[in-house]
């Protein structure tokens, strides 16, 4: 009987303590951040993959070595390189990242021998209505700025193997968006 009364009273006390705690919390400041209006500043955020802009030349550093492509676990990167018409070196003509597939592991940044890649600036609300917008052309800002590396004329891989002649003549009708910029 005493045991029973004791358990009932201790139960009641525990319930009362619980209620006291919830009441105390009710007068605390809510922690909600009303998101679009308020924002928490990002300390480190893995944005989409982008090219590093080198300070001196204002150009990208990619040497089209394919290391990132080989490593990428999600296989979301694609790279097209062509032979330079000037000195026969590999020149990057197209670099695309499908951000929809990217798993943000930053392994491509790790393996890059020239440190040409980085995570882009925090852009938390990256939203698009079509999937196409999330396939990113990393060369686009450089092409828009007209940096030297994007202007190197390249041998058209589709053209017959007459390098000198091909270099002299402008490339054929533009098939992809980068073709006009390259010419």
């Amino acid at each position: 009987m005493i045991q029973y009364l004791k358990s009932v009273s201790s139960g009641l006390i525990s319930l009362a303590t619980g209620m006291a705690i919830t009441l105390r919390y009710a007068f605390k400041k809510p922690v909600t951040v009303i998101y679009p209006k308020e924002r928490i500043p990002m300390k480190r955020f893995k944005g989409p993959i982008a090219f590093v802009k080198e300070e001196k030349s204002q150009d990208h550093l990619c040497i089209a070595c394919n290391a990132c492509i080989k490593t990428c676990p999600s296989r979301c990167m694609s790279l097209v390189a062509a032979k330079s018409a000037v000195d026969g070196k590999r020149v990057l003509t197209d670099f695309k990242v499908n951000y929809m597939l990217c798993s943000l592991c930053s392994l491509c940044i790790d393996v890059c021998p020239t440190d040409a890649l980085k995570h882009d600036d925090p852009n938390y609300d990256m939203v698009s209505l079509t999937q196409r917008d999330l396939v990113m052309d990393l060369l686009k800002p450089f092409r828009d700025a007209g940096t030297p590396l994007t202007k190197i004329p390249v041998v058209d891989p589709a053209a017959p193997k007459t390098p000198v002649a091909a270099a002299a003549t402008p490339p054929p009708a533009p098939k992809s968006p980068e073709a006009p910029a390259a010419s």
Binding site: A26, P30, V31
Partner: peptide, 13 residues
């Protein structure tokens, strides 16, 4: 509103 305040939230706004 009451549940939100107890749970450190704002509730409907």
């Amino acid at each position: 509103k009451i549940s939100a305040r107890i749970q450190l939230r704002q509730g409907p706004l």
